[in-house]
Design a protein around this nucleic acid. Structure first.
Lengths: 206, 206
DNA sequence: AGAGGATAGGACCATGTGGTCCATAGCGCA
DNA sequence: TGCGCTATGGACCACATGGTCCTATCCTCT
């Protein structure tokens, strides 16, 4: 019953990642989901817009499970978790050769200006993402220098990753993202207290 | 004669910034340029695609003049120029309240995957941008620590700015970009030799 | 067996798209 | 004046789009 729905959602996610929301037609989605008949689509979804919202939601859930989850691993040192998270983003991109970029960044660039509904939902995505990093930084506050502004640093990390993923997609070269990830970890390390950093000396090859 | 052409190009630039390339129709462009009759458009441009290429070109020229130019100011200390450049990007975004983001990033996200012609042209834009920062870093090499990789650092700066501009657009809040700009300058300062940094002590409020 | 709702199929519609064509207007130049 | 060029208008086309609607099928429950 709800299986057909997910079939449609999955097909739509792929197509939207490849061509963007506007350039993905309902007919394409139906074809992608191997259904024929457009009424079938409108049996499950109110409109194409609604489908887009739901795809975005699912993308975030997926990202929360596969990317953000590590940020909450209680057995790992918080700063280390942050590094692992960055590596995870690289790994996620590597799965498709960096070809499709970030679903959030893509939709943001395509629709933020023109479509308030999407803009708000994408804003919420970034908000939740930032708050996860924010609470990790709070948890790690004893290890961080006093001048760390958690909100600002969270945004910096997200912005850099989004930008890096976008450039990687344009250049079709994963090493762009890899290089930026290294520098980003360095930037974070810059905010770790010297004493803590000394403890980890030699542990980090970069 | 060529004035009508620029009229069309200007109108198209505005519309593409607002709604993206795909969602900007030729009819809209004509209306925006206050011309009537589509044949007029096709008198000046081979196709909509061609128009897009030319708009992208002009955007880069504009950015080269208004943004990148400061990177080559011979009378200013190179590192200082880099800071000024970052401030300039913020100022450029402030002109429209950060609403439209980066024309390069937007087109990249919208078309990089689906349209090879655009992808290559956007890649070239980033390439030229990176090489300008790269040669500045080369010029400043005496002031920089030995571990600076000019190519990687250039990419990092561009990625962070592009990501920041995108987030600013989504949140409709210029302070996002401003905050990231501060951190980005700090990151750059991290690569400046201690001796040089001491000389400038107190000069930088952040 | 038969009623009734969920599922499918696909014809259909209004609108918007990029792009073509052709008939005219205006113009400088001889 | 009249030739020939570029500019201008707009009708027109084939096709794709999001969305609706009506009719079959299927499955389940009685």
């Amino acid at each position: 019953m709800t299986q057909r729905r997910t079939q449609i959602l999955d097909a739509a996610a792929v197509l939207i990642a490849e061509r963007g929301f506007t350039s993905t037609s309902v007919d394409d989605v139906i074809k992608g989901a191997k259904l024929s008949g457009k009424s079938h689509f409108y049996h499950y979804f109110k409109s194409k817009e609604e489908l887009g919202y739901e795809v975005l939601n699912r993308q975030f859930e997926r990202f929360a499970e596969r990317g953000l989850a590590v940020l909450r691993e209680p057995m790992i040192d918080p700063i280390e978790r942050l590094y692992l998270f960055i590596d995870g983003v690289v790994a996620l991109q590597a799965e498709n050769g960096g070809r499709h970029g970030s679903p959030f960044g893509n939709l943001a660039a395509e629709l933020a200006d023109a479509h308030e509904g999407f803009r708000l939902r994408i804003e919420a995505v970034f908000e939740r993402w930032a708050s996860q990093i924010g609470s990790l930084l709070w948890e790690a506050r004893a290890q961080l220098t006093d001048d760390v502004d958690a909100v600002r640093l969270s945004r910096f990390i997200i912005a850099t990753l989004e930008g890096a993923v976008l450039m990687t997609r344009v250049k079709r070269d994963l090493s762009v993202l890899e290089g930026i990830a290294i520098d980003l970890k360095r930037f974070i390390a810059m905010h770790v207290r010297q004493s803590v950093r000394d403890d980890a000396r030699g542990a980090r090859p970069w």
